[in-house]
Design a binder for these strands. Structure first.
Length: 723
DNA sequence: AGGTCTTTCCTTTTT
DNA sequence: GGAAAGACCT
């Protein structure tokens, strides 16, 4: 059969065993994605299964998109009827149709993690809980756990237990009243719906005859529960996973689910995919030697028919800058030798590491793509504008109101808003009604301002139906005063451009959802934005890929650089004391190494700036775990390491003190602006100016007319003396 | 209330 | 070193 061409025996089994539960344990690079897509093709072409009867669940949007792409293009199947999505978008899609059964309104909006964090904080403040003494971050995490299991609160210790219990209640009520769902709700409410409403469950059980779950090792208990509710009595469930690649325990992923699956579906068919089609044996050897250090795992050894390949290169830079320059230089050299920019990936543990690479790549004109990081949709202006859209659609959305009322400022501040919410609470009114009826509570001037604002919002609601999206966006930006506000913002130009970019995105969606009402359309678009956090904006055709180790999962590249391999950077310092967490770091390393097809570079630096301070981290433990004969060493590691022992700095306090002292004196001399009255200086932000007077640490400087006269710290780094 | 300067916290990782 | 929150001044 043509479809099965190029598959090995094990892979064929995984495709052909269509009925009943199947568990495929698939090592890195074992052709898992192609098994998944071919299985879908086989179901449709050979078993005549309707695409609408297939549900494929992935973990990230990137994986979902890639699977869609492959099913659509490589196999020529129309994915329109097929559900290929993440757990969360699947939940949203089901809830959009049935959530009224749970008392919510169907035009609910999704609130992202940043916003829940803020919400918890403001709820704490409103209840006079000191957010300095009690971290809102901890409270929020505990509240989220309580969402999964209310009994969880009994294991929380005083005094947090009482606070968390209160905030949990308030938080849930707030979301419900505002018709908002957080990420957890997307799963939990779907479960509640399926448990509570038998006919709904029957509908989906009948619809989803074949369920496929990718990256099963990353499912948490709630997601597993959801899978079980969706799988019907035929038990046609296919899961693919690899416990060595479980990297989401921090988010509740539970490797135990693999064992639970075995128990819940005792009749399951097991397939082991161990042959690797991706990497050279040198790379696999290194990966095997790293992962073997983890205690809790089923032994598994990847093998490959590819040759030995090139050795791994470890480069140690003198500074982090040096490390980055080396990476850039190496990329360029290899491109001259015939590689494409597309062939390279730079992998790092934390998003913040990407900054310096961006700097250097820009400078050297190396094209690159960057995944994740500050997503387009998390920018202030975009969040502001989406808050407008949300509030226009739903006047009960108090959270969006708070944002919108303050940009631009409208003379309605914290005090007045507090009055409105108190009023709503006392009278038991919906937020939208409170906004209409609260006049007596407010001063006349504030009441008038609020009226004027609500009139604008009502007008926006009318215009939404009247105007094409393009014009609607311009209309809102103009009439809300947002455009005027940007004129005084020093980042106004960039912000404006981003908003125009956002307009384009809306217009594109307009075409996709052409047959819906404007309101429905906008609701879908906002949902999309909330769930698909990242959209690689700069669409470089051929560029180096910069991404975190987490988002690298499932991808492969000819050449991979894993950077900043230092104790504290990777593995992260906070994981040192916890074996469980440390082993997750190691799995992350394993994922990183196995992304490489031909050549692997491991880099780090002797010195780097962290939090604005120079630190010297020892080499990452993971470097030692790779057999040294697989590696060649370059850079600092060869030249200098023998003469200075980095660890001395940590062992000898007096040495450390000396270094600190020297560093301090360097800092001091760097920052001292020996300026006197009458000196001409230049300021990073205010431009050129003349020193009017100096007194102690401060000085008074006259800048150009638009900035005027300012009192500033004399030694502020933004001030430089002009020659 | 709003703007500016100063201090604080920070880095996991994703939906 | 940089963003966000807070303190302080107008």
């Amino acid at each position: 059969m043509e479809l099965l061409q190029g598959l090995n025996e094990k892979q064929k089994e995984a495709v052909l065993q269509t009925e009943g539960p199947v568990m495929a344990i698939a090592g890195a690079g074992s052709g898992k994605t192609s098994v998944l897509t071919k299985r879908i093709a086989y179901l449709i072409f050979e078993k005549n299964v309707h695409p609408g009867n297939i549900l494929a669940i992935t973990f990230t949007n990137k994986a979902a998109n890639e699977m869609k792409e492959r099913v659509r293009h490589a196999l020529g199947i129309n994915t329109y009827d097929m559900w290929i999505s993440t757990f969360h978008s699947m939940g949203a899609r089901i809830l959009r149709d049935h959530i009224e059964r749970l008392g919510y309104k169907r035009n609910f909006q999704i609130i992202d993690d940043d916003d829940t964090q803020q919400l918890v904080k403001s709820l704490m403040k409103k209840r006079n809980i000191d957010t300095k003494l009690f971290s809102p971050k901890i409270v929020r995490n505990l509240v989220l756990k309580m969402k999964f299991d209310e009994d969880f609160i009994h294991s929380v210790e005083a005094p947090y237990n009482e606070i968390v219990a209160r905030i949990y209640k308030a938080y849930q009520a707030y979301l419900f009243d505002s018709n908002l769902l957080d990420f957890e709700d997307l799963l939990l409410l779907t479960i509640r719906l399926l448990q509570q409403e038998e006919d709904v469950r029957a509908y989906y059980n009948d619809k989803f005859r074949y369920v496929l779950v990718d990256e099963f090792q990353d499912t948490n208990n709630v997601q597993y529960e959801l899978i079980k509710l969706l799988v019907n009595d035929d038990h046609n469930i296919f899961i693919v996973g690899d416990e060595d690649q479980s990297i989401y325990a921090f988010r509740g992923a539970n490797i135990e689910n693999i064992r639970k699956f075995k128990k819940d579906y005792p009749e399951h068919y097991l397939v082991l995919l161990e042959q690797n089609y991706r990497s050279t044996n040198t790379i696999l050897d290194a990966a095997n030697h790293i992962i073997i250090n983890n205690t809790a795992r089923i032994p598994k050894k990847l093998f490959s028919t590819k040759g030995k390949g090139e050795p791994i290169t470890h480069y140690k830079g003198v500074t982090a800058r040096d490390e980055v320059e080396y990476v850039a230089q190496t990329v360029q050299n290899m491109v001259h030798r015939g590689y494409e920019y597309n062939d390279f990936a730079i992998l790092y543990r934390a998003n913040s590491t990407s900054r310096m690479f961006e700097d250097v790549f820009l400078q050297k004109q190396i094209p690159y793509r960057i995944f994740g990081n500050t997503s387009f949709f998390k920018r202030k202006e975009i969040k502001d504008f989406t808050a407008y859209l949300r509030f226009i659609l739903n006047n009960d959305d108090a959270f969006s109101f708070l944002r919108v009322i303050a940009v631009p400022r409208r003379g309605i501040g914290a005090v007045s808003i507090e009055k409105i919410t108190t009023y709503a609470a006392e009278k038991g009114l919906a937020f939208s009604d409170a906004l209409r009826l609260c006049h007596e509570y407010l001063g006349t001037s504030v009441a008038n301002k609020l009226d004027a604002f609500m009139a604008i919002i009502r007008d926006f609601r009318t215009q939404l139906d009247e105007l094409p999206f393009d014009d609607f966006v311009d209309y809102v930006l103009e009439k809300s005063g947002y455009i005027d506000m940007l004129k005084t913002d020093d980042k106004g130009d960039v912000r404006y451009e981003n908003l125009m970019e956002f307009k384009t995105i809306l217009a594109e969606n307009n075409e996709i959802y052409g047959d819906l009402t404007k309101e429905e359309m906008l609701t879908f678009i906002l949902e999309d934005i909330a769930l698909k956090s990242e959209e690689s904006k700069e669409d470089v055709e051929n560029g180096v890929t910069l991404l975190t180790l987490h988002s690298a999962k499932g991808l492969e590249f000819r050449v991979v650089f894993i950077v900043a391999l230092e104790m504290g950077m990777f593995p992260l310092a906070r994981t040192f004391g916890d074996r469980f967490e440390f082993e997750e770091e190691r799995r992350l390393m394993y994922v990183g190494v196995t992304r490489a097809k031909e050549k692997l570079f491991l880099t780090n630096a002797d010195m780097r700036q962290t939090y604005g301070e120079t630190v010297r981290n020892p080499d990452s433990k993971f470097l030692e775990e790779i057999p040294q004969e697989l590696m060649t060493k370059e850079g600092y590691s060869v030249a200098i390491r023998r003469s200075t022992n980095v660890n001395d700095v940590y062992r000898k306090p007096e040495l450390k003190r000396q270094i600190l002292k020297k560093r301090q004196s360097l800092l001091d001399s760097d920052n001292v602006n020996d300026i006197k009255k009458g000196d001409k200086i230049t300021h990073d932000k205010f431009g050129d100016g003349i020193v009017v007077s100096v007194a102690g640490e401060h000085c008074i400087i006259a800048f150009s007319v638009e900035h005027g006269v300012k009192k500033l710290l004399k030694d502020h780094p933004a001030i430089k003396k002009r020659k």
